[in-house]
C-alpha cells in the first residue's frame, strides 16, 4: 500500500503552504453543501479546483481519480433515484415496469455534481501535498505533537504492516490456506492471516511508547522544528479571505432560508 493519491511535482500548487490548500478544500466543501443557489454553489468550487489542478499539471490525474472513485456511486444514484425516486412526478420514459422520473434524475444529478466538486477540491489538496508535509505544516501551525503523532505515525506504519501482511499471506498460501473458495473457507482463511498480525502489532506498542518517551515525546519543554515549510503573508491573507468568503456564503444562505426565500 503506497501513499496513493499524492503526485510528486514542483508546480506552484505543490509549493503552496499545505494549510492554504487545506483551507481552500474546507471552504469549498462548506460552500458546496451550504452555499446559496444549490447548483451554482455545487458547480463553481469544482470548476475552480479543476482549473487550479490544470494549471499545476495534475488535472488529468485528478479527473481519472474522480471517475474511478465516483462512477459506481453515480451510476447507482441515477438508476435508483431516476427510477425509484420518491419525489418522481414528471415521467420522462417507460422501461417495461419501470418509469424514469425527472425529479429523481435532477436530484441524482445535484448529488453527483456535489460529489464531483467535493472530490475535486479535496484532491486539490491531497494530490499536490505529500501527507508528511501536510502533517508538518499542521505541526507548525500549532497542532499538538500528540495529535501530529496520531496522524503521522499511521502513514509510516501502514506500508510496513502491508508488507508484513504480504509475507504472512504468501506463507499461508504456500501452506495451502486458501483465500478463495466458499464463505466458510474464506472466514477460516481470515483468522490465521490476521491474528498473528494483530497480536504482534499490539505487543510492539509498549516498546514503541518507551522509545518515544526516552526521546522526550512528553517532555515539558517547548518544542522546536529542524526545518520549517515556508509560509508567506500573502498566503495568510488568502487563507483568511477564503474563510471569510465561505462564512459569508453560509450566513447568507442561512438568513435566506430563515426568511423563507426557499
Amino acid at each position: 500500500m503506497t501513499l496513493g493519491l499524492y503526485t510528486a511535482g514542483d508546480s506552484w500548487l505543490h509549493r503552496l503552504f499545505p494549510i492554504t490548500k487545506l483551507i481552500f478544500s474546507l471552504s469549498a466543501i462548506a460552500i458546496i453543501f451550504g452555499g446559496p443557489n444549490k447548483w451554482l454553489s455545487a458547480i463553481l468550487p469544482g470548476v475552480i479546483s479543476i482549473l487550479i489542478l490544470w494549471s499545476a499539471g495534475i488535472a488529468w490525474r485528478a479527473l481519472k481519480l474522480i471517475v474511478q472513485l465516483l462512477t459506481p456511486i453515480a451510476v447507482i444514484l441515477f438508476i435508483v433515484h431516476g427510477f425509484f425516486g420518491p419525489a418522481n412526478h414528471q415521467i420522462l420514459m417507460r422501461l417495461g415496469p419501470f418509469v424514469l422520473g425527472q425529479e429523481g434524475l435532477m436530484y441524482a444529478s445535484l448529488i453527483v455534481v456535489r460529489l464531483v466538486s467535493t472530490l475535486a477540491s479535496s484532491l486539490l489538496l491531497v494530490t499536490s501535498t505529500h501527507p508528511g508535509s501536510l502533517i508538518q505544516a499542521l505541526e507548525q501551525t500549532g497542532l499538538s505533537r500528540k495529535l501530529v503523532y496520531l496522524l503521522g505515525s499511521p502513514l509510516l506504519l501502514l506500508p510496513q504492516m502491508a508488507r508484513r501482511i504480504q509475507t504472512i499471506r504468501s506463507a499461508q498460501q504456500s501452506r495451502g490456506l486458501e483465500t478463495q473458495g466458499n464463505l466458510l473457507q474464506r472466514i477460516k482463511a481470515l483468522f490465521p492471516l490476521v491474528a498473528p498480525l494483530v497480536f504482534s502489532a499490539l505487543v510492539d506498542v509498549e516498546e514503541r511508547s518507551l522509545a518515544l518517551e526516552v526521546r522526550g515525546f512528553s517532555a515539558p519543554t517547548p518544542k522546536t522544528n529542524l526545518t520549517e515549510i515556508p509560509d508567506t503573508t500573502k498566503q495568510q491573507v488568502l487563507r483568511w479571505g477564503m474563510i471569510v468568503i465561505a462564512v459569508c456564503f453560509l450566513v447568507f444562505e442561512f438568513w435566506r432560508k430563515r426568511n423563507g426565500y426557499d
Partner: peptide
C-alpha cells in the same frame, strides 16, 4: 536503547 530496532523508529 531497546532490543527491537524497528520499534525505536519514531514513525514521525
Amino acid at each position: 536503547v531497546l532490543q527491537n530496532p524497528t520499534n525505536q523508529i519514531s514513525e514521525m
